[in-house]
Design a protein around this nucleic acid. Structure first.
Length: 640
DNA sequence: ACGCTAAAACGAAAATGCTT
DNA sequence: AAGCATTTTCGTTTTAGCGT
């Protein structure tokens, strides 16, 4: 039996009491996955392992064997401590492993294999974010006054905490971050993605809610300090300053060259932008003497002829640590720029693993790095109780705006030139079966199958059969649509008032010109879109006819002389109308499908007479098409 | 956090209208 | 009727809520 990592206590109980586990089916062994892969998928699942084990012990599996596997030293020690606390009896076994295919390998090493003794390399550690850590701690401390972890107030404070830490560890100035994302992501989200403003807005909302009234002063002080720091970091964060110093030393003054190891490619781009800005004339020459690495590539590149070159690791994580400790070619004096919290927890890990006998070959390195970390931690002025700061990922995530969420649509080309799209289910018609219409997975449809594709005509007939949507729907709909009409009327009035053209296209051009005048960015917005927004007069059109994103909507309203406040309100109406229409559409289709394919429930529940249903089903037979060709969705690319 | 669904918005191209 | 502007149409892309 396999237990899903999302399963909680309730599911554990049902699973363990299933008859399948009785008698012959009784498991000999529980195999528990605490590998870093599992931890990345769901760290809470790994944390729950001791609880799960205790649960099995208490629920009839007291003498069933259990093995926990992990490849992460930190997890090892944490689990060891938790298991002892639960008074569970266990033994541990450690192996040193250097192959890339660990745990399950097609090429196992000899049973008596031991790692080769590593040369001792010394390290040069810098701790870069004491001030940021202090402020982060302040934000974290304030969460105690914020109620449950799910509350938005709590989240706002935690976000601020995380933000300050991440920013202080970024190898660039705040200005590089904002300009970079402004260039990359056009939408009004993209540029805000990793900016301080949304974080601050959430804090402001939290304050407004009154939930923080008791600590209001403290929160306001913390916000002020955060803004002071962010201001100071506009040109360069503490991490960035250190990186710049390293580059200046090894790639500008020394010309010997430097290899920089950063968390990911986005960070490489940010650091390049930053260094280019700071080094100005020296950049071109320096760039040639800098080698850029990310964590995923450095292990391989380090192996070859890099000796003599200086290495600087920007940030530390388990992968970096592994390389520092085990890589045969680790150059002497490699620099490690590390966050305060990470320095502390890394030191804890190192102190623990140096006792592990299997890691004897690495012991010199472990000791040297531990000593250096210890020394630097002791140097931190006014040290904090940094262990209280919860551990979190210190790298910003960048929404890769390279259309990631591609929808897995099947396209069915039907006889007679029609086509139909389906993501999940389609209704297949098989005349010889008893319910002739059966739901089938889109992937199971073969050319030559017959599928159902509703015609507008049938749709209209269904609509009239369901008289209910008149009363049921319009009562809800009317207010929303009235408000939308308010907006449409406002737009039309202003068009007549402020612009001379009466033709829609000319009007659209005029407004567009005005928009560009107000905000040059509106040049990216084609006049055709404005033209669409002005298509308001048609009857029976419930579409809002407004810009897709709020940015253009605002400029559009401004061009029509609508105040920001009113524009805000209109935008609300537009969004409500969109939402409502979508809901109604889905509801409608759900009812159609119910009537056509589960007629017994429709007859009773919806009070649709049986003969009407029979008639509608006859109609449905006309909406069957033979599939001639299938275009499957593009295979999802697995990016490693 | 993700997949499913339906509608809205969009961009380009086709169709239509209007002028010379 | 050619040449251009204006609409309409069509297929595609984006968005948002819901259920899991």
């Amino acid at each position: 039996m396999a237990m899903h990592y999302m399963a909680r206590k309730g599911a554990w109980r049902t699973a363990l009491t299933t008859p399948a586990l009785k008698g012959q089916g009784r498991p000999e062994l529980l195999l528990l996955d605490a590998t870093s892969a599992a931890n990345n998928t769901s760290s809470s699942a790994v944390k729950r392992i001791p609880d799960f084990l205790l649960f099995t012990r208490e629920n009839g599996f007291a003498d069933t064997g259990a093995v926990i596997v992990t490849d992460d030293p930190k997890t090892f020690f944490i689990l060891q401590a938790r298991l002892s606390k639960f008074k569970l009896i266990f033994s541990t076994k450690e192996w040193a492993v250097e192959a890339s295919d660990v745990l399950l390998s097609a090429h196992p090493v000899a049973p008596d294999w031991v790692p080769a003794q590593r040369s001792s390399s010394n390290f040069n550690v810098s701790i870069v974010d004491r001030d940021a850590s202090q402020l982060a701690l302040a934000f974290q401390r304030l969460t105690a006054s914020a109620g449950s972890e799910e509350s938005p107030v709590y989240q706002a404070l935690l976000d601020a905490c995380l933000y300050v830490l991440r920013l202080s560890n970024m190898p660039a100035g705040y200005t590089d971050l904002t300009t970079a994302s402004a260039e990359a992501g056009e939408g009004d989200y993209g540029s805000q993605q990793n900016a301080w403003t949304p974080v601050k807005l959430k804090l402001a909302a939290a304050l407004d809610s009154g939930a923080l009234n008791k600590v209001r002063d403290a929160v306001e002080r913390a916000i002020a300090r955060a803004e002071k720091l962010i201001d100071d970091w506009n040109d360069a964060t503490p991490m960035a300053s250190r990186v710049l110093a390293e580059v200046q030393k090894h790639a500008v003054a020394d010309r010997q060259g430097i290899s920089l190891v950063l968390p990911n490619n986005r960070y490489v781009l940010l650091a390049q932008r930053f260094l280019k800005r700071k080094l100005e004339a020296d950049w071109a020459a320096a760039d040639e003497r800098i080698e850029w690495h990310t964590l995923s590539t450095v292990g391989k590149t380090l192996a070859s002829d890099r000796t003599g070159k200086h290495f600087t690791f920007v940030g530390i994580n388990p992968d970096v640590l592994r390389i520092l400790i085990t890589h045969p070619e680790m150059p002497h004096g490699s620099a490690v720029l590390v966050a305060y919290r990470q320095a502390e927890s890394t030191l804890t890990t190192l102190t623990s693993i140096k006792e592990v006998r299997a890691f004897k070959a690495y012991r010199d390195r472990i000791n040297l790095l531990a000593q250096e970390l210890e020394r630097r931690l002791a140097d931190v002025p006014n040290p904090l109780v940094i262990g209280k700061l919860r551990e979190m990922s210190l790298t910003f995530t960048f929404e890769d705006n390279s259309q990631s969420g591609e929808q897995a649509y099947y396209k069915f080309e039907l006889e007679g030139g029609g086509r139909s799209y389906a993501a999940g289910w389609v209704y297949r018609h098989m005349p010889d079966e008893d319910p002739p219409f059966r739901r089938a997975a889109a992937s199971a449809i073969q050319p030559g199958d017959f599928i159902f594709d509703m015609s507008d005509e049938l749709r209209a007939k269904l609509e009239s059969s369901l008289q209910m949507n008149n009363e049921d729907v319009s009562s809800v709909v009317d207010p929303v649509r009235m408000l939308l009409k308010l907006y449409h009327d406002d737009v039309q009035r202003r068009c007549a008032l402020m612009f001379t053209s009466t033709k829609r296209s000319a009007l659209a051009r005029e407004i567009h010109a005005k928009m560009v005048e107000l905000d040059p960015k509106a040049a990216d917005c084609r006049p055709g879109r404005v033209y669409y927004w002005l298509a308001l007069q048609a009857k029976d059109d419930t579409r809002p006819h407004a810009a897709q994103d709020s940015k253009y909507f605002k400029v559009f309203c401004k061009a029509l002389g609508i105040t920001d406040e009113a524009a805000e309100q209109h935008w609300g109406f537009v969004r409500n109308a969109r939402r409502l229409n979508q809901c109604l559409g889905r509801e409608l289709v759900a009812r159609y499908a119910e009537i056509l394919f589960q007629p017994e429930s429709a007859a009773t529940y919806r009070k649709v007479p049986e003969d009407v249903i029979r008639q509608l089903q006859q109609e449905a037979l006309r909406c069957i098409y033979r599939v001639e060709h299938i275009v499957p969705p593009p295979a999802r690319l697995i990016t490693s």
